[in-house]
Amino acid sequence: MPSKTHVTATINGEEVEFLCEPHQSLLEVLRETLGLMGAKEGCNNGNCGSCNVILEGRLVNSCLVLAVEIQGKSVTTIEGIATPEGLHPLQQKFIEHAALQCGYCTPGFIVAAKALLDQNPNPSEHEVREWLAGNLCRCTGYDRIVKAVLDAADS
């Protein structure tokens, strides 16, 4: 019996194949197998949102998804948010609004905010705060993050 499973998936628009063990999380495979280091580990149990990715259009904590579960599915990580033309408006607004300090939670927030704006292009402040309640930031007090997301929604 082979100990590893072969998985084919689409990551950031490109077809990817990898081998993984059945207990490995998507976060571990993204980072250790595929070298996509943008998703961060903050808690490894779904409480901090630093490892957020978009799986088939849904925001998920990649630490709570098994890598084998993405067989045949499509995943967007922070590395897939910018376009060849340049930064995504959310990325630009995060820089302009100083919506980061240490930057460790930033990939998770930007992925989460993109998932929000994809389904609700015009959120209220309360909706932004409620949506981002699954992402922890310890540096900013969220003020500038919320403003950056609202501003990105406007533009």
Binding site: I78, A82, I95, L100, G103, P107
Partner: peptide, 12 residues
């Protein structure tokens, strides 16, 4: 704009 801004919003 902070000098390390792009690196930090792109996951790099």
């Amino acid at each position: 704009l902070r000098h390390d801004g792009v690196d930090k919003v792109t996951g790099r």
